[in-house]
Design a protein around this nucleic acid. Structure first.
Length: 479
RNA sequence: CGGGGUGUAGCGCAGCCUGGUAGCGCACUCGCUUUGGGAGCGAGUGGUCGCCGGUUCGAAUCCGGCCACCCCGACCA
């Protein structure tokens, strides 16, 4: 059923996104410009994202801790590139207790500085390394222009911070997080395929040696940076005095990393999968995986149907996150519509005819209308739903991969790149400089999203300089 | 910060040109009938018309100033 309150993607993609966020009741704007209220459904998705990431972060040996919201300005200023990169977007507290503060406090835009100070106290010997810490926190970046989930003034995230004895170990950590935590989570839980690779110097984190990222394609062909992992080298260790004694009793600066993903992932999930009918939530993250809608006329039928629904749902033994929508004052059609907008992956209908026949109607959200609906015996319903949730996940992932591949063009020259980035990604031979990149951005609005790990080996002539190169870069317009 | 737009009920809007007791749809409340794709009928609740000032017997409407928000760009996870 077409929805009156949702602008079709084809008409205005940006408005469509805002409509999904409000109609699916994920978030709303607040009294503070650029800040959003995350409503229960949106927050439940975030909690599921947190839990999937937290499990992976701990499985790779990290521990959670918590550091202060405020950072003395002088600390933030210790790493030169870092302060330069973040200065324009830092919010500063100048008063406390009714008095001007002796030293202004930055509201953290990220926590390298304050965590670096702690690390300096915690690390003395090579035996203290590696130090593997993560924190779940809110941060504030004073952005010019905001969009719910994709870019808000305050946002929620996790930020990992680690210290290592060698450059090689720091590099290994940086890549492990990108691959085993971020890419794995994105593809296996969010059903969002990602390109993995390195950022160019122009796009890397302020103060980092190297930044790696996962990049996803949204349904308008634009790129969304879904996670970043930074090898900070010894830059921050020098600035904050994170030193240790080696086995040979030499003093050495540690090699540190940092990495993060944010509530932006909720935006990624919406934009990668949803359709003109509403949110399409990937099954493994859906707060409600199965909604059961009872259908009846009159009191007698109501009792019979609800009894059957209770019995059937009880027999599932908690295998799924289930909601029985037994609200009496709404019609089934209204409920179908509501849960469709809210993206519930599977809908089960139980009516008088099903009670008589021992069946239930099962509809899948990712395939609307009759195509996605079938009748299933109540005795095999649990296994059917379990398989269906898997099938929906795989189908959503494959559809997203197909979309990305269909909107990615191998380009041989600059003219082809200009055309390709209008609708998606361009994979282009690249041997240019930051200045070349900037010129391309000014002319096409596209930037190098990543230098992918996955390299063809032989590339061709660089689209900027014409020089022979073996390296390709992925260009795209980004959020 | 540049360009464009909008402020009237919880939400979406009309009314403004041509000043004269604030209206529609949805939502909400109550009642009855309904319920396999957004139910119907009836009766209700709800607004100092963004703010300040001016003109006028009288301002949502005309004039001046201010503020807020949205959209499009530059900055960014």
């Amino acid at each position: 059923m077409p929805k009156d309150n949702i602008t079709p993607r084809g008409d205005n993609y940006s408005q469509w996104y805002l409509d999904i966020v409000s109609q699916a009741d994920l978030a709303e704007s607040s009294e503070v410009r650029g800040c959003m209220v995350i409503k229960p459904l949106g927050y439940a998705i975030w909690e599921n994202i947190q839990s999937g990431l937290d499990r992976r972060i701990k499985a790779t040996g990290h521990s959670n801790a918590y550091f202060p919201l405020f950072i003395p300005m002088s600390l933030l200023q210790r790493e030169a590139q870092h302060v330069e990169g973040f200065a324009p977007e830092v919010a500063v507290v100048t008063h406390g207790g009714g008095e001007p503060l002796a030293e202004p406090l930055a509201v953290r835009p990220t926590s390298e500085a304050i965590i670096g100070c702690s690390f300096a106290k915690w690390v003395h010997s090579w035996r203290d390394l590696p130090l593997l810490i993560n924190q779940w926190a809110n941060v504030v970046r004073w952005e010019m222009r905001t969009r719910p989930f994709l870019r808000t003034t305050e946002f929620l995230w996790q930020e990992g911070h680690t210290a290592h004895a060698t450059e090689a170990e720091a590099e290994e950590e940086t890549l492990k997080i990108l691959n085993e935590v971020y890419a794995d989570f994105s593809e296996r839980e969010m059903a969002v395929p990602v390109l993995r690779g390195r950022k160019t110097d122009r796009e890397k984190f302020a103060g980092a040696l190297r930044t790696y990222a996962i990049e996803a394609m949204m349904q308008d062909g634009r790129a969304l940076q879904a996670g970043t992992s930074h090898n900070l080298g010894q830059n921050f260790a020098r600035a904050f005095g994170i030193k240790y004694q080696t086995v040979d009793n030499l003093e050495e600066y540690a090699w540190t990393t940092s990495w993060g993903v944010s509530t932006r992932l909720v935006g990624a999930l919406i934009m990668a999968h949803s359709d003109d009918e509403g949110l399409v939530c990937p099954p493994r993250l859906a707060p409600i995986q199965v909604v059961v809608v009872p259908i009846y006329k009159g009191e007698a039928e109501r009792a019979t149907v609800l009894e059957a629904v209770d019995r059937v749902v009880a027999s599932w033994g908690g295998r799924f996150r289930v909601k029985v929508d037994d609200r009496d004052q709404m019609t089934p059609g209204f409920k179908f519509n509501e849960w469709e907008v809210k993206g519930v992956p599977v809908r089960v209908e139980v009516g008088p005819r099903d009670v008589a026949k021992g069946t239930a109607a099962v509809a899948r959200r990712d395939k609307p209308g009759r195509e996605g609906k079938q009748f299933v015996g109540q005795d095999v319903l649990a296994d059917h739903i379990a398989a269906l949730l898997e099938e929906i996940h795989n189908s959503m992932f494959e559809r997203a991969v197909r979309f990305r591949d269909d909107h990615t063009v191998d380009v041989a020259d600059y003219g082809e790149l200009v055309e390709a980035v209008k609708t998606g990604f361009a994979r282009a031979p690249w041997a240019g400089t930051g200045a070349d990149e900037e010129r391309i951005q000014n002319e096409t609005k596209a930037t190098i999203r990543v230098i992918p790990f996955d390299q063809p080996g032989k590339a061709g002539r660089c689209v900027a300089t014409g020089a022979e190169t073996d390296q390709v870069a992925i260009f795209g317009r980004s959020y």
